[in-house]
Structure formats: C-alpha cells, structure tokens
Design a protein around this nucleic acid. Sequence first.
DNA 1: AATCAGATTTAGGCGACCCTAATTCTGATT
DNA 2: AATCAGAATTAGGGTCGCCTAAATCTGATT
Lengths: 227, 227
Amino acid sequence: MAPSSSPTLTRSVEDYLKAIYHLSLGGTPAGTTEIAHLLELAPASVTGMVKRLSEQGLLEHVPYKGVELTAVGRRAALRMVRRHRILESYLVAFLDYTWDAVHEEAERLEHAVSDGLIERMATALGNPSVDPHGDPIPAPDGSMVELVYTPLSEVPVGEAVELRRVETGQADRLRYFAEHGLVPGAAVVVTSRQPFGGPMTVRAGTHEQLLGAELAGILLCSRGEAQ
Amino acid sequence: MAPSSSPTLTRSVEDYLKAIYHLSLGGTPAGTTEIAHLLELAPASVTGMVKRLSEQGLLEHVPYKGVELTAVGRRAALRMVRRHRILESYLVAFLDYTWDAVHEEAERLEHAVSDGLIERMATALGNPSVDPHGDPIPAPDGSMVELVYTPLSEVPVGEAVELRRVETGQADRLRYFAEHGLVPGAAVVVTSRQPFGGPMTVRAGTHEQLLGAELAGILLCSRGEAQ
DNA sequence: AATCAGATTTAGGCGACCCTAATTCTGATT
DNA sequence: AATCAGAATTAGGGTCGCCTAAATCTGATT
C-alpha cells in the first residue's frame, strides 16, 4: 500500500515537518534534540514521533545521526510554509497587524485554514512572492525562488544597498528594526564600520544609526547593479 | 479550587459546548444521543465527555435526563458562536465566499483564531449585529439581541414582509434560496397559499415562486409597521 | 403490573502525543 | 585504548478523546 496520502496530517505532525524543514535548510540533517528545542518538547518525545513519521515515509531517520525530509515530507512542509507566510502577509496587509505580531497568530491558523482560503488570501494580496519579513513564499506547487542576499554586516562602507529581508522571528528585534526604518524595501547606506566584527553605523532614510554586528548579520540586502 | 478558568478549552470541548448550546435553545436539556448525532460521535463517547465537563463546572448533567450549560459553559459557548458568525461574515464580505460555503471554513477557524483577530475582523465589518444568514452575533461580553420573527409559512396572503433570517446550515438549501432571491433583506409578498400546510407562492423581486411549507418555515420575516 | 424499545451509561480498549528516568551510543580527549 | 560528556534512544506511564459491546434505566404500552 502506498504511504500516507489522504489521511490528513495532524497538527503535531505539521509542526514537526515544518521544524525539520527549517532546521535542514543549512544542508545538515536535523538532530532530535534540536527539533525538541524548537518545538519545546522533550527529546525523547521527538525520537518517538520521528520513528512514526519515518515509517509513514515523511522523513528519513538514521538513528543517532539525524533526520531529513523525504520528497513527500518536504512537500507537506513547504505547504505549511506557504500557509504561514500568506497568512502573515494577509494579516499585515488587511487586518492591521504589525510584522512583529503576526507570527503567533499565523502559527495557529496555518493548521486550520483550508487550501481554498489560502488561495483566496493570496489572490487578494496579488500573489506576493515574499512576506512582510522578506521571506520567500513557496508557490502552491511547492516551488520557491530563494534569492541570495548579502548580510548588511558584509556590505562595504559607503555602499548603498536595498534592505530585502529581515531574518528573525523575535518580536522585540522586529519592533526595534521597524522603529528605525529597517524594513524590507528601505534604502540603506553603510557609513562606517569598526574592525574585528565591531559595530557599524548605517543611514536609513534621514538619520544615522548604530548597529551591532549580530543584528547587521540578519539584515539581508541586495547590492546595486554594479558587480 | 475554582473551576476551569485559564486552562484553555480543547477543540473538542468547544464543539461540545457549542452543540449543547444550540440544542438547548428550545428550552429543554440536550440528550446525549442528540449531542452525539450533531457531533457525529458515538453516544457512549458523549456520556464520558459530558461527565468530565460537568465535573469541570461547564455543564450540569442529570443522568438519564439531559445536559444543560452552566453560566460558565454558556459564556464559552457564546464566545464560539460569536467567533463563528464573525468569521462567516468576514469571509463573505472580504474573501468572496458565498453564504452556503462559509460554514465549514468557519467551523475550523473558530477554534484557532485569537480573540484579537476576531475583534479586528469585527471592526473591519463595522461591528455587525447579524451574520450573512441573519443570525444574531453575540457581543464580546456574551450579550445577544435576538429578535422574534415570523416564519414566512405563517404570513397571511397578500402581506408584504422583509426577509430577515434564513435558519438552516444546509448548503444546498442556502444555494437554492440565494438563486431565488430569498436572502436577508429581500422584500417578499405572499401571493397565495394552499390550506392544510400546503405549498404557497411568494413574490421576491420580479418573479413568482412556489414554496413548500417546510422551506417557508425556516424563512423568518419581520412584518410591516402595522400590528 | 409486566413488558419492551430506545435512550443512556458502564466496561474495556485503542491510538496519538507527551513526559521522566534509565540506558546506550558517538565522537572527542587524553 | 580507556574514558567521558552529551546526544539519542528505550522503557514505562499518563491524558485526552474516541470506539464497540454489554449492561441498565425510563417512559409508554398493553
């Protein structure tokens, strides 16, 4: 008999798949403890679930080594990512949510919304390709165009760039960035930088702004046409 | 210790409370089999859950007699009714759903949406007091203004009334009504009626329309200023 | 008052998920 | 090669919510 097809995935399963997807983005398989940490579960619980899911053909588990999604699992994970990002986009665009407040809401809705509603929201949004944080939105078929950007921390002094993506889900950081005009689409110039991973100053809009290396590392930019 | 307060209710529990609320509207306590039928569960399962919920103070269960909500239980049920009806209204108003298609979607979303999002949707809608079917929407505090309407089946021949509420959740019936202009707000005139609960003819907008007694009984109308 | 159908409850189980405690493995260190 | 810390797994439990099958109750009938 074929593996899981119609027997709709559980909320928990959807969370596992999405977590494993995110953890595997770096190329290395996800560890069970790592998954446990992300989902706020005990590692032993993850081992059990992982065993079940690999029996269902959603992921590949090499004991003591790590977990990777199968093609079927990845498709399900990307479906959740699409739902999450469409929801975030919709809530920000039409229901006055701020970009630091949408995550939690989307996290619950992504399990409850029908495919049809997601597509209606996508249509209302004009089928966007990125969400409010600049994260790419997978297409309904699971394809996703992921552009490569330069962390602001690596942009040379004097160069003008466009901020494209803010890679964090932490609400306090997102709020901080928004307050200082550091949102996708903003034009930014690096005005100075201390050596050895030290802080830098940037100009976004009108005012100058001091920025630590860690934060600058999660601000992804596209550089001008040159080079 | 006080009964349940913060320990958020389960999806199942929310469904039970809402079902019992609807079944108790007539004034008589809900039977377990009745609940089982509505929720598509085995009666034995309902007995078990009902016992747990009455221990939690959400409802009152007299074995072999019936189930009624406590004040706490009713509040929780009305909260779900509000969520459901706000969701239906929002989906119809902003996302192109038809009134026969919203129920299923709202049924799942009502468990996942935050109070904050519901209130944002309500605001976007202009804080409506009725949903697309004309059903009253409870206020956030649980209060609800329920007007008394006359079933179209009891409106005298020749009288002009306004259709206010369509009391069914069955998609095929809703579609039928919509196709014939029988939606809340429509002006309707009873043009003839057969005796002994027989069919009647009504005029809604331009054309004459034959209508059986059963369907006419779920179309609720407000009668003119006279009497 | 005996009987009966149907509603209701009790008994016993099962699957999905989670937990803690105890054990085992792995890779690095000495 | 022995040791060790930390990661990962196994063992054993618990809860929630559902099910089927087997009592039991209730109100109406005769």
